[in-house]
Every structure is written in C-alpha cells, then in structure tokens.
C-alpha cells in the first residue's frame, strides 16, 4: 500500500476538528506535554472513528513523534499551534512552530527525502544503527509505518508549518 496523495491546490476539503495553541515557552517547559497533548487530541478526534480505541492509539503515536520533533527545536519564543482536520479516512495534522531559516531548510530537505523510494531501507538501517533516531528518521518512520504523506508549508514570521496526512482509518495491522 503506497501513501495517499492529495492534490495540493484545490485538493479535497478538510474539515477542521480541533486546534490547540500555546506559547512555545510553556510547551518546552515539560517533556510530558508531548504525551499530554497527543493523548488528549487523539481521544477527542477518535470518538467517531469506527474503532475509536485503536484509532486513538495510532494517532497518538504518530502525533507524539511530531510533537517531540517540535519540542527539540527549542526555540525561545513564539507560538506552537496544532490543528487537526479530516477528510474521509484521512486525518491531517498541521503543526506550526517557531524555527530559524537553517532549520527550515533542514525540514524541507528531510521531508523531500521521505518521499524517496529508499525511505524504507533507510529507516531499517537506522533501527539497527548506533545513533538514536534523528528528527529526519522520525519523519521517515511516519511514512513507513503509518503511510503518512508529509510536506512543509509557509508560515508567518520565523515559523514552519509541517503538514502530515495520516490515512489511519484504512491502516491494517
């Protein structure tokens, strides 16, 4: 099963489901916030999925990884915004967080790698490698294990917007 592709311009209409905004300072003050936010949002948006407990568990694992990525950015100020919207079987996470231009290029690079054919290979190599998973590998894993599609979009000021589409409803074990 390959990733689900969406037409960027004039693509399907995603219905907004839930949004959380907070000061990045407050967010990075405790690691547990990644877990809180991912667990809470996963529960809220999974209620009307056909298998709510399973959906929530999958969504929370994917979303937590993204939040951990944002956490590691450790930018001193600005806002963190998380938005979830839905179109049919796909849930879209939009994560906006402060980030300097070099980092922005890093993410653009990382996301373009995710689409590459050898993504799976590189992910497997990283699992048996010495290094703890980098942010790039974390993004790769979303594509490999959750069939996610990722992209980077423009955000106002010194910020980045990661857009991740997760077709969890159709995902088999």
């Amino acid at each position: 099963m390959g990733p689900v592709h969406h037409d960027l311009a004039g693509g399907p209409a995603f219905e907004p489901m839930i949004q959380i905004d907070m000061e990045i300072k407050a967010f990075v003050s405790a690691w547990r916030h990644c877990d809180y936010v991912s667990t809470y949002m996963a529960r809220m948006i999974s209620q009307n999925r056909s298998d709510s407990v399973r959906h929530s568990s999958l969504f929370s694992s994917a979303f937590n990884e993204l939040l951990e990525v944002a956490f590691r950015t450790r930018h001193a100020d600005g806002e963190l915004a998380c938005r979830v919207s839905r179109h049919g079987a796909t849930d879209r996470i939009e994560l906006i967080f402060p980030c300097v231009p070099e980092e922005r290029r890093f993410y653009e690079e990382a996301v373009s790698q995710v689409a590459g054919i050898e993504a799976r290979e590189r992910y497997l190599n990283s699992v048996s490698g010495d290094l703890a998973p980098s942010r790039e590998i974390v993004l790769l894993e979303l594509a490999v294990d959750y069939n996610a599609t990722l992209r980077v979009e423009d955000a106002d000021g010194d910020a980045i917007k990661l857009v991740v589409d997760l077709p969890l409803e159709g995902l088999r074990n």
Partner: peptide
C-alpha cells in the same frame, strides 16, 4: 505496550538486534 516513542523503540531494538 500502548505507546512507545521512537527513542525508546530504538534503544530496546538495538539490544535485541
């Protein structure tokens, strides 16, 4: 095991591998 992040997954997997 309801949740495990990539960092922990890597740590345990490495030991097994």
């Amino acid at each position: 095991l309801t949740q495990m992040n990539n960092a922990a997954f890597h740590a345990f997997s490495r030991i097994i591998i």
